[in-house]
Design a protein around this nucleic acid. Sequence first.
DNA 1: AGGAGTTTGTGAACGGGAGAACAAACTGAG
DNA 2: CTCAGTTTGTTCTCCCGTTCACAAACTCCT
Lengths: 250, 250
Amino acid sequence: MTSRTPAGETPTGVVRADGLRSPVGHADVPARPGREIPEATVARLPVYLRALTALVDGGTATCSSEELAGAAGVNSAKLRKDLSYLGSYGTRGVGYDVDYLRYQIAREIGLTHDWPVVIVGIGNLGHALANYSGFRSRGFRVVALLDAATTRHEELVAGLEVRPFDELEDIVGTQSVAIGVIATPAVAAQDVADRMVAAGITSILNFAPTVLSVPDGVDVRKVDLSIELQILAYHEQRKTGQLPTEGASA
Amino acid sequence: MTSRTPAGETPTGVVRADGLRSPVGHADVPARPGREIPEATVARLPVYLRALTALVDGGTATCSSEELAGAAGVNSAKLRKDLSYLGSYGTRGVGYDVDYLRYQIAREIGLTHDWPVVIVGIGNLGHALANYSGFRSRGFRVVALLDAATTRHEELVAGLEVRPFDELEDIVGTQSVAIGVIATPAVAAQDVADRMVAAGITSILNFAPTVLSVPDGVDVRKVDLSIELQILAYHEQRKTGQLPTEGASA
DNA sequence: AGGAGTTTGTGAACGGGAGAACAAACTGAG
DNA sequence: CTCAGTTTGTTCTCCCGTTCACAAACTCCT
Ligand SMILES: NC(=O)c1ccc[n+]([C@@H]2O[C@H](COP(=O)([O-])OP(=O)(O)OC[C@H]3O[C@@H](n4cnc5c(N)ncnc54)[C@H](O)[C@@H]3O)[C@@H](O)[C@H]2O)c1
Ligand SMILES: NC(=O)c1ccc[n+]([C@@H]2O[C@H](COP(=O)([O-])OP(=O)(O)OC[C@H]3O[C@@H](n4cnc5c(N)ncnc54)[C@H](O)[C@@H]3O)[C@@H](O)[C@H]2O)c1
């Protein structure tokens, strides 16, 4: 029962069971108090979304902030404050309607429709990404796999044919692609990013270990495996008593 | 005379050219005042390290905080403050000795020796990780690839044989592995984490889209592709003017 | 209906990090 | 030696995010 919506059903018709003075379903948005969502909150919304989906799949209809916070691995006060930026979607004394809240978060993030995505650099990592089913199930659709090496071309990966990198502009233009993924070697990453931006892409997820420079208005997020490991190593070193200044192991 | 190496460059022979009051003799460092490096700084040190390595490879011997900050994509004041937590490794009016600073950061992070790492779950992503050369070059050595599926066993990946998951305890014990990588499906991730912890692993890098619960003293970092994409989607939605509340025209 | 119990939403205190600004320290020329 | 120029290390202020704590709002039982 995924499409069951409480009270008022439609996605567009905001329910407003409560009579709060707060931001009701006004079309007027300019200075709406609840609309400036802090970046830290935005980063947690996907986590809540995932936890809610798990609850829905488990058949839970309602949950308290305490339960949901537990499932998401955060403090319950933080969860409530985060959700309060979206509006008042809970009921005091009761909790949150799981399916309703899930839809509200999905709408806020912009997952009510699928986002087309291109992946550039179909090597080790690119293959794994292309085969990753979590893309599709979480609101993203890989529409093209591009690589500069001709030896990669025409290869079928996850049902898609690897295409020459030069087709980037064409694909981005015709399919209105806004999000690009870079999985090329580091030396090529800046060039690829430049081409992406020129083609009209405005959001980039970068796996190459390089600092990208892009114009204003373009968002870049990086996923850097080595950095994560190095952060772990730093703390690990402290745990084991092997402090940095010790090292005269000779 | 720019490329003067402060006092010897060997990784094992710790330099100590500075006459810091630091606790050389003692491995025991319970309450050291100046050594509490903020988490945000720790997360940036690997970026600086990478930028410095690029400078060394490019033949640069000295650089200012401005230059280095540019290469790392941060504010120069922030860079200087970050470095100040490690000590005074720069020279006023001159800048930083690239190679010396690089070694100091590597030492602080704990990269003067390699860290053994095990990867569990050798599917799409696990293969890519195993083949990733950036591991080795940044201070990490993959010592074992483990998978529960017998069909995967004995397969050679990047020169390593995939071993049964049951060998985890043995490998961790004999090779003193402190860091584990989880690349299994989400449903298996918590079980794998529990086994890792029981085997003695105290740092986990988790690629499965799940919240892991671990005892105190165990660090977990997650890499979550879907979350990154969803954050991008949120901002993308705002750019295109497609605000979430559009539709409430009533 | 009323009161006890529960849970949300938010005001307020608190802590940490970012950035600006500046004194201290070094170099090099005269 | 002195002075001008350069760059670090640090202090100070502001802002964002976290957490506590509690009134408001709802349910349920008597
Ligand atoms: N493999 C991993 O697990 C892993 C982990 C973390 C980060 N990374 C990073 O991800 C990137 C890719 O890693 P990989 O292991 O897949 O490397 P890879 O060499 O296997 O694949 C890179 C692909 O990019 C293509 N390419 C090169 N230049 C290009 C260009 N200008 N335009 C388009 N395509 C181009 C190559 O033809 C190749 O197919 C690297 O930057 C790596 O550091 C990889
Ligand atoms: N493929 C990607 O690009 C990608 C991206 C982001 C996140 N992820 C996540 O990474 C994980 C792995 O993704 P994948 O595409 O490689 O999946 P996969 O199904 O290809 O590989 C999973 C592997 O884990 C093994 N496994 C299952 N249960 C196990 C257990 N209990 N102990 C040990 N091994 C076990 C399986 O035998 C299989 O080889 C998933 O959680 C996925 O959501 C993958």
